[in-house]
Design a protein around this nucleic acid. Structure first.
Lengths: 232, 232
DNA sequence: GAGTGGTCTAGACCACTGT
DNA sequence: CAGTGGTCTAGACCACTCC
């Protein structure tokens, strides 16, 4: 026995089909919730659930009074999972290890202070670390921590635990910005990751915030071969 | 006046706060829906909506009978918008243009046929194109189209419209795989994008499917400076 | 002002799964 | 088997926004 004909999931699927086959064309206004509830013989709340799901995935645009339209040029939305480094490595069946390379309290360069909205001359905690998968360099981490936001952060915290996991437990954030890009390895970075200079590296920067206050800014340079996979 | 105290969004926010401040610790079982409904003085459906939202964002794990737990090490989930190329460029305030560089029906290399699950010796439509932002090379496209799945695709289709947009209208897909990586420019690619050989390029591959049948496989090599931004 | 989606309620039954 | 979340219903009122 398949799903009940009146389940929101069945209706959601029917909606996707109507959009795909252009029974409902891009830009077109579709029937309102009451009409659809009659057509499908279910409660309006059930229709609402199905339409809401389609709207969340970007296929429909809903407005009070104006009604529901099929999105003309949908920007496909994908859910991207950003796991903790250790898990990322271990779920690939490899052994995780890491090495703290430097850690120091100092005044960040202007670029960092402005990005993290820190006051000038305010010190931060700077650390660099190398993470390994099966003993091979996997990613190089360069991180600043705003010790004004997270006063409990000090160099001793990161002797045992890596910064990634320490912050997750001790400095939960309310939002974050992430950027993906490609960069050539500098000579220094090439030495660390054991690749030739100018090798293309996948680069991730992440800044996290507790409301208006920055918590940490991190740059991750992944060893060659790293690929981010998503489904849409 | 802020949101009603009993709105699902207010409750959702309260849940986030309890997780953030570790009133509910990682891994811990939280009260069931009926108990929370009593505490907040609202219907169970309202609690369900709030908890479901938190579960969808990965902060809670819910299981029938077992109850609801705070996720121990949440993999942050982010929503990634993948717009059509033209929009991506135009929404940055630049002018879009494109140039079809080659188009031909031929048998793809084995790597492609196996990836797209095509029969050996089956022909596909191969095209390459360059997309410009304000006249500057922005991304180089190398695409295969499975003409068995999309018989209406033929070289004439792409004289005027770019493949990206033609397929969106004429070959809607049910799912797709996307990969992000970093690659060094080859000499040839460097010439096309007008960058030096070995320049690090941001690379996107995308394969789309109609159920079990592949529609298209595309490799996009972005000019230097390209950054994917997301929020978590 | 009126039409549409957004949400809440109280109650019911179902589906899954731990014990 | 029993406890928990998952979903559906019928009805109600609210909030937004187009006209």
């Amino acid at each position: 026995m398949s799903k009940n004909r009146n389940s929101w999931q069945a209706i959601h699927q029917e909606i996707l089909d109507r959009i795909r086959t252009q029974i409902w064309s891009p830009g077109e206004l579709i029937p309102n919730e009451v009409e659809l509830a009659e057509e499908f013989g279910c409660a309006r709340a059930t229709i609402n659930r199905a339409l809401r799901a389609a709207a969340e995935s970007g296929l429909l645009e809903r407005k009070r009074k104006a009604g529901t339209r099929v999105t003309a040029q949908p920007a496909h939305k994908a859910i991207l999972r950003i796991p903790v480094l250790r898990r990322e490595i271990e779920s690939a069946g490899k052994t995780y290890s890491h090495e703290l390379r430097s850690i120091k309290i100092r005044i960040p360069p202007a670029k960092i202070t402005s990005h993290m909205r820190m006051q000038k001359e305010q010190t931060g905690l700077h650390l660099t670390a190398l993470h390994f998968a099966n003993g091979q360099p996997f990613v190089y981490e360069d991180r600043w921590i705003n010790t004004k936001t997270i006063p409990s952060a000090n160099p001793d915290c990161f002797r045992e635990t890596n910064a990634n996991e320490w912050l997750l437990t001790n400095a939960p954030f309310t939002r974050g910005d992430v950027e993906f890009s490609a960069k050539n390895a500098t000579k220094q970075l090439g030495n660390i990751l054991r690749v030739k200079e100018s090798q293309a590296l996948f680069n991730v920067t992440r800044t996290t915030w507790r409301d208006k206050d920055s918590i940490t800014f991190v740059n991750l340079a992944y060893a060659p071969g790293y690929v981010v996979k998503i489904e849409i």
